[in-house]
């Protein structure tokens, strides 16, 4: 069977979490009716201590994953346990607080814990899904190789365009110059194509042009498709056909480049949220424990 971090060691840590949650539920239900269940009963203190221990242990993954010489259980076991015990933490903490929430530092710690767990779940999804998508998208060609291919066909395109009229020449040159790859976080995350092209202004005979969006090279392709039936010079239609082919190749190359960037970013970005939120959780947990005993 294919082993991943979820079914590692026959889901050993899943069963650990189930047992932990059953034990915690039993503890919660054993609270006397003399007071509403809360974190201040002895059961509440035990549940809180389990939650505190879990949070500290879960945070230690950050240290363990850098300890390459560590002889403790292998990292795969650590991550598998991190995921299952991390998810069970929602149950432990909810039983500790006895479903009581408010606008206070205690619920702040709870909300941060939920946010950390949700970001972790997004990371889990990324780790399980994106590596396969990345491999599929690469199709045995690395990002750099694909950039080289792009440079190569751009050169071919410019050479072909040099034999066409200046209007086509300027348009192709502009489409290549103004092709956008990468960009800011949101652009890369969603794989947005912000390419543009300076196109001849319609209805004028002058050389004046206007800037248009060239998402997916489609504006230029549409222009060439419309142009091919209306060529007059001999051999021009053939050149334009070749240009069209080159633009089609470009379209595909750019699409895969952007997809790679997007998948790479998605695989990493969750951790940039998970870690600061985890630190914030540790601090708010300290505040929670301090304040509860300060105003006992």
């Amino acid at each position: 069977m294919y082993v991943n971090i979820l079914n590692y060691a026959r889901r050993r840590y899943f069963w650990w979490s189930v047992i932990l949650l059953i034990a915690c539920s039993g503890l919660y239900l054993s609270q006397a009716e003399s007071l509403p269940p809360n974190g201040g009963s002895w059961q509440g203190y035990v549940l809180g201590s389990i939650g505190l221990f879990l949070i500290i242990w879960l945070s230690c993954l950050g240290i363990r994953k850098r300890s390459y010489a560590s002889k403790s259980a292998n990292l795969q076991a650590w991550v598998s346990a991190h995921i299952y015990l991390g998810i069970s933490l929602i149950g432990v903490a909810t039983l500790h607080c006895a479903f009581q929430f408010g606008l206070n530092v205690h619920t702040l710690a709870y909300m941060l814990m939920c946010a950390v767990i949700v970001s972790g779940l997004i990371g889990l999804y990324a780790y399980l899904r994106y590596p396969r998508l990345l491999v599929e998208n690469r199709a045995n060609q690395s990002f750099e190789q694909r950039l080289d291919s792009l440079a190569k066909i751009d050169k071919e395109g410019l050479a072909l365009a040099a034999n066409c009229d200046t209007e086509i020449q300027h348009m192709i040159s502009s489409a290549i110059d103004r092709t956008a790859i990468g960009g800011n976080l949101l652009t890369q995350f969603f794989g947005r194509d912000r390419s543009s092209v300076a196109m001849p202004t319609k209805g004028t005979t002058s050389k004046h042009s206007q800037m248009l969006s060239n998402e997916g090279q489609q504006t230029v392709i549409d222009f060439l498709v419309a142009k091919i039936p209306n060529t007059q010079k001999p051999g021009e239609a053939e050149r334009l056909q070749k240009l069209l082919y080159i633009l089609g190749r470009r379209q595909e190359l750019l699409r895969r480049l952007r997809r790679e960037l997007s998948l790479q970013l998605r695989t990493k970005l969750w951790l940039s949220v998970h870690i600061p939120l985890s630190m914030a959780l540790l601090v708010s947990l300290f505040v929670h424990i301090f304040t509860v005993f300060f105003y006992w």
Partner: peptide, 10 residues
């Protein structure tokens, strides 16, 4: 420059 995206600093 476009490809060098700096992730938010954890």
């Amino acid at each position: 420059h476009e490809l060098r995206l700096k992730l938010p600093s954890s």
